[in-house]
């Protein structure tokens, strides 16, 4: 797949393919992380280690708790219990996403969060941490931050060229197509100089041509020394780029291993078959799930929280579903509704 491996990237041989297996050099370690919604345990992870410099795929049927798990790891949600170590340092249970981002953990969202009424280049420039001009008083005096701003812009322009988006530089991000937004979000997250990049369904709704270039970028990041975790539905994509696969079902991690091993794992197959009939992961078919045209979800794209909600709604636990809704509303458009 790749030719210019990062020297720190170790092969997967010899790593035990069991849930919670230990890795030689984990960038992220999770211990007994639990997230409950009412009576439902959306996430219940005993132990997980993410190896540095690998691409780790997080897969699982609808409602498995993947996005909730992502939210917990990135501080967008708070676990009922559980501990995370990032780079060997214990993170507090309740930590704000911005603090984690400043420590080098950056994420993208399943529903892209491009800043629609800012030009692409401004989207990019926002990513840089610790900008002098982001403080109130220095902001008033341009000479104090102008030099840094120019170097940021230069870097942003280079990244845009690399992502083949330089021609859209001055367009409002809101005018981009769904796939382009995914690219922009990924490029923007790189502006933060991350160590760990967490991509929530980077290829969902992206057309095949753009998907290929997106995947190349992902492997490119690994080769530059970053660690990547991504949520994915498409097994082909997982096979193509992942070094390691973690499978979740009903909030738990049920399997770990290389892509090849995982597709032969009976527990995984059971989990998928035993789940809802609308499971959109298949091993034989293409398995692509294109949602809406050009990646633009027609309605609210059903994300994992929604899926949980369906299950719960089926169980007639209305109250729980209600809370999900509120939670959901907050996460997706809460800031401004």
């Amino acid at each position: 797949m790749t030719t210019t491996d990062h020297p720190g990237r170790i092969p997967t041989d010899g790593i035990e393919a069991v849930p919670g297996s230990s890795k030689p050099d984990p960038i992220l370690e999770v211990d007994t992380m639990v997230r409950q919604f009412g009576g439902l345990r959306a996430v219940d992870v005993e132990h997980l280690e993410i190896q540095r410099h690998w691409i780790t795929a997080l897969i699982g049927p609808n409602g498995a708790g993947k996005t909730t798990f992502f939210n917990l790891l990135t501080g967008f949600d708070t676990p009922n219990e559980g501990a995370v170590e990032f780079n060997g340092e214990a993170m507090p249970r309740r930590i704000s996403p911005n603090k984690l981002a400043r420590q080098g953990m950056v994420r993208t969202f399943q529903l892209t969060k491009s800043l629609t009424r800012l030009p692409v280049i401004e989207n990019m420039k926002l990513g840089v941490k610790e900008q002098r001009g982001e403080r109130f008083l220095p902001a008033l005096i341009k000479p104090l931050w102008n030099e840094q701003e120019e170097s940021i812009e230069e870097r942003a322009d280079k990244l845009l060229v690399r992502f083949k988006m330089d021609h859209m530089r001055d367009e409002f991000a809101g005018t981009l197509s769904g796939g382009q937004r995914k690219l922009l979000e990924m490029a923007r997250s790189l502006m933060t100089d991350p160590e760990l990049v967490m991509l929530d369904e980077p290829t969902a709704g992206v057309n095949p041509a753009l998907t290929q270039s997106l995947l190349q970028h992902v492997t490119g990041l690994r080769d530059e020394g970053m660690t990547i975790i991504f949520v994915e539905h498409d097994m082909d994509v997982v096979h193509e780029i992942a070094d390691w696969v973690v499978v979740m079902a009903e909030g738990k991690i049920i399997a770990e291993g290389t892509p090849d091993a995982i597709s032969k794992n009976e527990a995984v197959v059971d989990a998928y078959l035993g789940s809802h009939h609308d499971s959109d992961l298949t091993f034989d078919d293409e398995g692509d799930v294109i949602r809406g045209d050009e990646g633009q979800p027609v309605h609210d794209e059903p994300d994992v929280v929604h899926d949980d909600e369906r299950e719960v709604a089926h169980d007639d636990e209305r109250d729980v579903a209600h809370d999900h809704r509120a939670d959901d509303a907050h996460n997706e458009d809460g800031a401004t509704t």
Partner: peptide, 10 residues
Amino acid sequence: MRAVSDNRDL
């Protein structure tokens, strides 16, 4: 009404 409140799309 409750269904619409819970999840409009659904």
